[in-house]
Structure formats: structure tokens, C-alpha cells
Amino acid sequence: MSPSEPRPGRDLAVVVLVAALVFWGVDLAVRPVAPPQHLPEVQEGMADLQASDPHVLVLGSSYGRAFWAVKDELARLTGGERHLAAVAVEHGKLSVYEWILQNRILPVLDATDASGRRQRTRLQHFVLVTEWWDSLPYGEGDPGANLPALGWTLDHFLADVARVGINQFNRNYLQKRWRRLFHDFALVQDRGFHTLIDSVRAALVGRIRPELRPEAVAARLEASTQLLEESIRGLGHAEQMRAWRSILSTMRARGVEVTIVLYPTMPAKRTQAGVATLERFHALAAGVAAEHGARLVDLSQWAPILDTDFGADCDHLTAEGDAKFARLGLAGPLAFLRNGASSERVR
């Protein structure tokens, strides 16, 4: 090494430091254009459950996220008296909810203190938030990647790897952990989806973000309407129905009031064929609810929720839509959550 040549260790440290700063700087620059979304998932729901003794426990698909607004509204209405915990599993399916209930939620609900007494005793309501899609079978080549990604803990992952090695299914656990590790970085959240590039390009020329353009929203609406209409054929898949019954019977056996909530469907998607799917699913839900003495609250065609309450994905409510859902819901069809369980339904 010549006297003028920098020391390799120092040289490497400078390169790494500057590279990290550049990465961070670019990320800061693109965040306003494509901000990373922080949605409450299973991890947040479980953390809330572990830190509290809720009166109401909500389990469901990504629609369960709307119940985080219900949680806030409920706390406001009751002066913080009543607590709701919502575990929202992105990408849905009843069999996944069942797994999370059995493997994640029940151990927390049954946790005891040093003297052997149960730590959580206040649970009165269990709400399952679902919709027609959750009762469909998994498609070909879709093993339900949301379970390892969102539902598993490190123990579940390691146990599976010890059994079968790392594969495309359980790798979803690591991919999700990687993304969560960098959850504030727009660059990492976009990784490989390329929406960031389109968004930056759009911002540079002063255009609206590609996914928000009217033609893109219209295409999404058409595709999701078609999916709703065509899904009537696969409703009530045996495995999903078994899981559904298992969830309800498990929670009924614990002496809590069980409610099935069917989430609102965007009015624009309620074509004649679309409504047929919704009604067919309502019949399935009503049957399962009757079997298990559960309450059914069908909000799939709830009039107060309008097209404008839905986001650009034509599927989920906006933050304002969530607030409206919570406000009107707790004043109307979900008002029972403000009170204790009725003895008749718990019986």
C-alpha cells in the first residue's frame, strides 16, 4: 500500500456511509410522490390485543382495518370505557382466519398470570368481518401466501423450515419481515413493482399518479365487478365453510357473543349479477349464523356507504370512509358493540 493510498477500512466505511446517505436521501425525495403505506396488519392487531383486555375482538380480512376506526369511535363514545382490538388479515380466506384464531389469538386470550388466573376476562363480543371472496377456494398456484407473510411468527417459520426446508410458500414470511424491516422506505416498499417509477415520472410532468387516473380506476372497477359476478360459482367452498364453522363454534364455546359482519360492497359493483353473488353469500352466512347462534349484520349493500367512500382500489374504504363507517355503524347496526353481550345471545 502506497503512503497516499487510503486505508482500506476507512475507504470502505466512507463508501458504505455515503451509499447509505444517498439511498436515504433518494428515498426521502420520492416519499412525497409515493409515500409508503402503513396499514394495520396482524402484527399490529396482535400487539394491541396483547397490550389490552378488549371487550370486542374483531377478526377478518383487510376489511378488518376499518374496525381500527370503529375502535377509536367506540373509545370516544364510551369515554375510553370499552376497548376493541382488530386483527386484520390482508388477502382474507376463512381458513387463514381460523389458523390465526387457533394459533395466535387463543393463546393470548388464554394467557394466565403467575397465580394461574386468566389475564383477559372482559371479552364480550367476537366479530368476524368477511365477504364472499373469503369463502372461495384458493386459486391454482395460490397457496395462501398471506398466512406465512402475515400470520406466522418466527417460531412457526422455523418449525416449517425444519420440516420441509425453505420453499416458495414459507419464504413469504421472510419477504414480509424484510419489507417490515424497512417499512419507512418508499424504495423498499415498492421493490420491483415499478409503481414508484411511474409515480415519479407522473410527478415530474405534473400528471396524476398512474393508479389514480380515471382510466386505471375504471379498469379496476370493471375487473373487480367481473370477479364479483363470476365468483358466484365458487362460493361456499367446503374447506372455507368448515373453517367458518370452526371459528364460530370455537368462539361460541368461550361464551362470547358472536357476530358476522359482511363488509360493504362498492355500489358501482352491484350489478344484477353482482347482487346475485352478494345475496347468495348472504344466504350462506345466514345459514352458518343460525347454526351457531351468531348475529348476522349484512352491510354488503348498506345504503349510507357510497361510491365516493371507497378508495382508488374500488374495494376498501378511504380513511374518511372508515370514519363514516365507524360513526354510522356504531350509531346503527353495530350499536350493540357499545354494550355488553346480551345474555340471550351468549347462551
Binding site: A19, L21, V22
Partner: peptide, 13 residues
Amino acid sequence: GVLVGLALVALTV
């Protein structure tokens, strides 16, 4: 360092 940082940005995206 700047070049490596930009390469990392590009690869990430």
C-alpha cells in the same frame, strides 16, 4: 459511495 448508493437505489426499484 454516491455511485454505489445510486446502484442500490436502482436495484431496489
